[in-house]
């Protein structure tokens, strides 16, 4: 469902050039949660932005359900729901108005819009504050609206960028439940995070990204066999200490 092919992005030219993502390839089938893990600056967010078509790759391409982002950027956007920890809400609008706006933006007709708003209000427990101005909501409530916003057009692919950042235990649990629901619905999910312990609980497969390159890829069991380490945290510490790039082995 998601196929990332030799994706590369360089910022700037000459000696100041930064290779943020370097020939990155991976695939995510339906119903799988893929964890794109890496420390800050590893290239996770840049990758997600290229998958979404917000950033033009220097080379390589992405296919979502057979649509290439380089050729059918709008169709690709229609297939994807984006959840970002940094995403804010329109403070003067209510959650209902925000959901209606995004549903309309994705081209849903008015009947579908109302159906989706009601469904998500129940699914994400938004009823109590559905008609309150967003500026008055708590952090957890805002995150629930954000999650609902990403699903307003019922996309087959969901990208989550640091979804638990800034959330307490209860808020994080909402996100975990959300991801499990999506998995059970057969959606292809990519989770970018540097909170490795949480990733172990959430993801089916992992890609360890370091300085723009995919260093290891596979299930937790695969990675343990490849690295002889028990946890992803230990694997990363090895990577950080390693002076030489480690080739991908999957």
């Amino acid at each position: 469902m998601i196929s990332v092919q030799q994706l590369t992005r360089q910022f700037g030219d000459g000696p100041d050039a930064v290779l943020a993502v370097d020939h990155l390839s991976f695939e995510v089938p339906p119903g799988e949660v893929y964890g794109l893990l890496g420390p800050n600056g590893a290239g996770k967010t840049t990758t997600l932005r290229m998958v979404l078509g917000l950033l033009t790759p220097t080379s390589g391409d992405v296919e979502i359900l057979g649509y290439r982002v380089s050729e059918h950027a709008d169709e690709v956007k229609r297939q994807i729901g984006l959840v970002s920890a940094s995403a804010g809400l329109y403070q003067w609008l209510t959650p209902r108005e925000i959901l209606e706006f995004f549903a309309g933006g994705y081209g849903l007709d008015p009947e579908q819009v109302q159906h989706q708003v009601e469904r998500l209000a129940d699914l994400m427990d938004l009823r109590r504050f559905l008609d309150r101005r967003s500026a008055t909501l708590s952090t957890g409530q805002k995150q629930r609206v954000n999650l609902a916003r990403a699903l307003v057009h019922d996309p087959p692919v969901v990208l989550l960028d640091e979804p638990t950042r800034g959330l307490d235990v209860v808020g994080s649990q909402v996100v975990f439940d959300f991801v499990n629901t999506l998995r059970s619905e057969g959606k292809a999910i990519v989770v970018c995070t540097h909170q490795l312990d949480e990733a172990e609980r959430l993801c089916d497969r992992f890609g360890l990204l370091f300085r723009g390159r995919l260093r290891y890829e596979g299930t937790l069991q695969d990675l343990r066999e490849q690295t002889q380490r028990a946890t992803i945290v230990e694997m990363f510490l090895d990577l950080l200490r390693s002076p030489q790039p480690v080739e991908v082995s999957a």
């Binding site: 339906p30 649509y67 059918h72 169709e75 019922d154 619905e185």
Partner: peptide, 28 residues
């Protein structure tokens, strides 16, 4: 998964995962 066009049958999908049928935005 190959080709540059849509490939809706490339993988099995459970009910509810298909996005809403919406008018192509490029034509909107």
């Amino acid at each position: 998964m190959s080709g540059s066009g849509p490939d809706h049958d490339s993988s099995p999908r459970k009910a509810g995962t298909r996005p809403f049928r919406t008018e192509k935005t490029a034509a909107r």
